[in-house]
Simulated assay, not measured.
Amino acid sequence: MAIFSLWVINKAGGLVYQRNFADGLASLTSNEYLVLAGTLHGIHAITSRLSPMGPSSGVQVIEGESFKMNILLTVTGTKFVLLTSLAEPTADSVLQKVYSIYADAVMKNPFHTPEMPIRIEGFDTRIGALIGTGQT
């Protein structure tokens, strides 16, 4: 069981935060992460319209052969994405805690501009303490 990576995607589909926590994922360039975030944003937008039962919040979990991607969509349109092993049982609660840390450390910071990359040491430190230290 492992948490591999955390992404924060703004409402326009731009990757504003990305951090790896465990080995196991392919090594990607910054540009490749940006493309993946934009693609996921588009998939999420499409899946929110596909529900036969009416309005939907879109895809919440994507499972591959060796990983699981959990997505939390906030009311402001920001997406929190957690890439984990298939057997990780705490992904949903971790995402809720990440959202709480984001609201406290990022949104209350008067020097942060919404929708821009998150470069706040307090956020990074608290995420590291929650999930574990890793590479940036």
Results as ranks from 00 to 15, higher is better:
K79L: 12
I9Y: 06
Q18V: 06
I43L: 13
G58Q: 05
G64T: 14
P114C: 06
V59G: 08
L40D: 04
Y33H: 15
G14M: 13
T39K: 08
P52F: 10
S56M: 11
A12G: 13
Q60W: 04
G128Y: 00
P117D: 07
Y33L: 12
F67W: 13
R119Q: 12
L95P: 00
A37K: 05
S48D: 05
L40M: 12
A103P: 06
S5V: 07
E115P: 03
M107T: 07
R126T: 03
S85R: 05
T39R: 11
P110D: 04
I131G: 00
Q96K: 15
I118N: 02
A91P: 00
K11R: 15
V61L: 14
Y17F: 14
V16N: 09
N70K: 11
A37P: 06
A37Y: 06
I118P: 01
I71Y: 01
N10V: 03
S5Y: 09
T39H: 13
E32I: 05
M53F: 15
A87V: 11
R119F: 08
I131L: 10
A103R: 11
D92Y: 11
G38I: 07
L36E: 10
R126V: 01
I3T: 12
I120V: 04
T29Q: 11
L72D: 03
D23R: 13
L86I: 10
V8Y: 02
T74L: 07
N10Q: 05
N10E: 09
T47E: 09
L40E: 05
Y102M: 02
R49N: 10
T47N: 10
I71T: 06
V61R: 14
I131S: 00
S85E: 13
I120L: 05
F123T: 02
N109Q: 02
D124K: 12
S56K: 08
K11W: 09
Y99H: 13
A22L: 10
N20T: 12
G42A: 12
V8A: 09
H41T: 01
K108M: 11
L130P: 01
V61T: 15
M1N: 13
E88K: 02
T113R: 09
I62N: 04
N109S: 09
G134L: 00
A87G: 12
T76G: 05
I101D: 00
I71M: 07
E115H: 10
I9P: 01
L34R: 15
I120P: 00
E32G: 09
P117Y: 03
R19K: 14
P117L: 01
S27Q: 15
L25T: 08
M53Y: 15
A105Q: 13
G42C: 08
L130G: 02
I101V: 07
L6A: 06
D92R: 15
